[in-house]
Computed example of a mutant assay.
Amino acid sequence: MTGHAWDRVPIDAQSIEAPLSQAAIFLVVGVNEGADALAKVRDLLGGIDDLVKSVGFRDLSARLSCIVGIGSELWDRMGAPTKPRELKPFAAVEGTRHKAPATPGDLLFHIRAERPDFCFEFERILLRTLGSAVRMIDEVSGFRYFDARDLLGFVDGTANPVGHEIGQSALVGDEDSDFVGGSYVVVQKYLHDLAAWGETSTDLQEKILGRTKIDNIELDDDDAPRKSHKTLATIVDEDGNEHDILRDNMPFGRAGHGEFGTYFIGYTRHLWVIEKMLQRMFVGVPAGAYDRLLDFSTAHTGTTFFAPSRSMLATLAGGSSS
């Protein structure tokens, strides 16, 4: 890959490299019009680390963290002199049978902790601080399900980069020097038809996912006429280089309402990597041979953000409004 020869995640980056947590809240809000609303958002961005410390000190082993992502339109409204090179609104993807819709969102707060009460308390204070400056768009509380499985019964996030690979895959390098240490973030909320999935044989489930269900062994489908989710989500460029992303997906649900889902959140150094992944999943390779997982999992949201470095957050907090 071009850019940094990453040895570690930069100290200035937000806590993107934090280990997978037991609980999370994914909060997407819109920022209301007016100078007062923007001023409140700036104050919040400037004090987000202090807020994490204020809540998190009660139990440091809870490992509370919060990553802030900023949408393209809000970035423009905040009047920053420069903008991440690839940042733009989520582009809807429509295949022959399934669609990845685009939905609004100015700010993403990815709140993580080992205890759900810490996520709740942080969100409560966060929203109280923002007050009428924002409007709620989407709020999902996720939980770690057994040994990092999704509600379909398969281990999720197996292909995540580790160690120095996190920086190579998830963080912007010297190719966009003003935004080194930042990350593009795409979120989607998928709802599963567990009844239909439960009626599907384990053998077919494994072919659809590309892994064995019990022991999580990768299956080879190079010669298969229909590619698995695993293969379609693997992105290789024209030079044969594989481009990973960092996923921190979480299951969520309300059994009493028949709601069972996976909240997809992907951090990437290059936005085009996730865009190509979604094209392969929803349109198919070749066209029409879409990801069969979509027959059981429906995307209801799709939003793109940029999670800047801590120093860039401070710059945005102190900038003048437009």
Rank of each mutant, 00 (worst) to 15 (best):
A255I: 11
D244Y: 03
G256P: 02
A255H: 08
G258P: 10
R247D: 07
K227R: 15
G253H: 13
G253L: 11
N249S: 14
F252P: 03
F252N: 03
E242D: 02
E259C: 09
K227I: 03
G240A: 08
H229K: 06
E242C: 06
D223L: 13
F252W: 12
K227M: 09
R254G: 02
T231G: 02
D244P: 04
T231E: 12
K230L: 06
G258W: 11
P251G: 12
A233H: 11
E259H: 14
I235M: 03
D248I: 02
L246G: 10
F260I: 02
R226F: 10
D248Q: 14
T231A: 15
S228C: 06
D237Y: 00
E238C: 01
A224H: 09
D239P: 00
N241T: 12
G256H: 08
P225K: 06
N241G: 02
G258T: 13
D223P: 00
G240R: 05
E238S: 10
M250K: 15
E242G: 06
R226H: 14
D244E: 06
S228H: 02
R254M: 12
D239Y: 02
F260G: 09
I235D: 02
I245Q: 03
V236M: 01
I235S: 01
N241A: 12
G261I: 10
H229L: 07
F260L: 05
L246H: 08
R226I: 15
T262P: 07
G256A: 11
I235C: 01
N241M: 07
G258H: 12
S228Q: 05
G240L: 04
N241K: 10
D248N: 13
I245C: 06
I245D: 01
G258F: 13
F252K: 01
V236S: 01
A224M: 09
